[in-house]
Amino acid sequence: MVKLIGAALILFAGTMIGFVQASRFASRPNQIRQLIYALTRLETEIGYGFTPLPEAISRSAAMLQEPAAGLFRAVGRRLDEQSELTFRECWEQAAAEIWPNTAMRQPEQAALVRLGSTLGISDREDQMKHLKLAIQQLHAEEENAREDASRFSKMWKSLGVLTALLVVILIL
């Protein structure tokens, strides 16, 4: 009886590990899409609303979902609290802070860091160009993420179940 309960728990745990990994692959394109939307809102605030960058960051954060809202809130908080830091430093620290809590990968982070190094140091038109470039890069990454999700999501689900089943067979 104890072996049967243990086998069921191992099978359940392995299955859940596979499903968690699959959900990370599935959520990555959605998070990239949210980040694209966030940058589009920021572009609108800067380009058409003539809003100063710190205020544009705060306004945009209020309209976004996680994880993009977390990034913008962290940038806004750092700008308010630590006036000795440049915008670039605030942006990079915020990205490093929220990145472990996302399903996104290094290419998306690199695009954001590049964007952060150019925002706030040039005129409005130049900032809009850099935002459009970052949005284009993220669109390409979103397409790659969709392909990865369709390819690896099923694999991780099956791998979790089959690995747990193998362990159960070896134990019994």
Rank of each mutant, 00 (worst) to 15 (best):
L64A: 11
R146H: 12
A8Y: 08
L172F: 13
P29K: 04
G18T: 05
R124I: 06
I135S: 08
M16G: 10
Q136L: 12
G18K: 11
T86W: 02
A56F: 15
N144Q: 06
S83L: 10
A62N: 00
E66Y: 05
R28E: 02
R124T: 09
L119M: 12
L79C: 13
V2G: 08
A8Q: 07
R124N: 10
A110D: 04
G116W: 02
L131V: 14
P29Y: 07
F25V: 02
S153L: 07
G76P: 08
M16C: 10
L138P: 01
A68Y: 00
L112Y: 00
V2Q: 05
M1Q: 14
Q127Y: 14
L131T: 10
P100G: 03
E43F: 11
P29C: 04
G6W: 11
E141G: 01
L11R: 06
L159Y: 07
T118K: 15
R33T: 06
S117R: 15
L138K: 03
A95F: 03
V167N: 04
R88D: 14
A62K: 12
T163S: 13
S27C: 05
L138W: 03
T102E: 05
R41K: 14
L119P: 15
M104Y: 07
D148L: 02
I36N: 10
E147C: 11
L159G: 03
E141S: 09
A164V: 06
T118N: 10
Q127M: 15
G14R: 09
G160R: 09
L85S: 14
F12Y: 06
K154I: 14
Q136F: 06
L165M: 06
A134E: 03
V168I: 03
T102N: 05
S58Q: 13
R114T: 05
V2A: 09
A96G: 01
E55G: 09
F12W: 04
A61L: 06
L115W: 11
I98P: 00
D123E: 15
D148F: 01
V20H: 10
I36W: 08
K157V: 12
E92L: 13
M128W: 00
G49C: 11
A96D: 03
R151F: 07
I121K: 15
T40R: 15
A69V: 00
I46M: 13
N144I: 02
Q137C: 00
E66G: 05
Y48A: 00
K132A: 11
H130K: 12
Y48M: 01
W156D: 03
T102H: 02
S158Q: 05
L115Y: 12
L162S: 12
G120T: 14
W99S: 03
I5N: 10
Y48V: 00
L115S: 02
G160Q: 07
L133D: 14
C90K: 05
Q136W: 02
M155T: 07
I36Y: 08
L11C: 11
D123M: 09
E45T: 10
M16F: 15
R41T: 08
R78I: 09
A103F: 01
E43H: 12
S83N: 03
A95L: 05
D126V: 13
E84V: 14
Q106W: 04
T44L: 15
D126E: 15
P67C: 00
Q109D: 01
L119I: 12
I57A: 01
A145L: 03
Q31A: 04
T51S: 10
L42W: 14
A134Y: 02
R73L: 05
S58F: 10
Q93K: 05
A38R: 07
P29D: 00
L79M: 14
